[in-house]
Design a binder for these strands. Structure first.
Lengths: 117, 117
DNA sequence: TGCTATACTAACCTTTTTGTGTGTATGGAT
DNA sequence: ATCCATACACACAAAAAGGTTAGTATAGCA
């Protein structure tokens, strides 16, 4: 086995993704936006336990990374919609894998509980 | 669109996975162990900037979730090896997707830089 | 005049995560 | 006797993440 090859250095793709998507909320927001563009208030309804500050903060971070697009309609009272960009949409397979993993994990838990371990 | 269906609640698979694998180090450790079982000291070499405490702490957390198996050879000085369990191995597709996403993202960055935007 | 709705800011605080530095046990080699 | 190697544990400190509360702006409506 080539142990040099697996050395984890500063610019490794896992870290890149962690920086872009890490934290408690970003993936949940992206998952929402995968369904449709949403206004801030709608996102808050769909992610009940996020605070307004976090939502705005994370949306801004996602904009800055180019994963989310902010569309301001310039109305009063304000109307702003958030939607995924092309790269933003590419987070879906990742989210799908997270889902798949969670299901497999819970299935495994059930198996172990059933067999009395 | 069925807005009820996409409401993110406390027991959602994304959150489950985030709880199991979130944080700065767990996925890097799992990625290492995907190659082969490793001793603590070897893991430290492959993940140069992790502290010993973090490594031990995260390995313990991964054991407790059933993703990693600890094998103590009972020698002196201590010899302990860590390896993936069956469910632990199921994190690979996820890691692969993270890698794929990071590459796509960087590709996109390059495209935007090249076109002067 | 005063209230509503909406997206957002800023100040401040708490909690969680991560890091540092030191100590422990022990068989074997020097 | 002394020191080494290895996998920890423990106390503490620093930094990052997350949360709460109180504003701001303004068109339209009662």
């Amino acid at each position: 086995m080539d142990k040099e090859a697996i050395l984890i250095t500063a610019r490794c793709p896992i870290r890149t993704t962690l920086e872009l998507l890490g934290g408690k909320w970003k993936l949940l927001i992206l998952f929402q936006l995968h369904h449709a563009p949403f206004r801030l208030s709608a996102l808050r309804k769909n992610i009940p336990d996020i605070s307004e500050k976090m939502l705005i903060q994370e949306l801004k971070s996602l904009q800055e990374s180019g994963l989310v697009l902010r569309q301001n309609f310039g109305e009063v009272p304000p109307r702003v919609e958030y939607q995924l960009t092309a790269i933003g949409r590419q987070t879906m397979p990742l989210i799908e894998q997270m889902r798949a993993f969670a299901l497999a994990y819970e299935e495994e838990l059930r198996r172990n509980t059933a067999s009395g371990q």
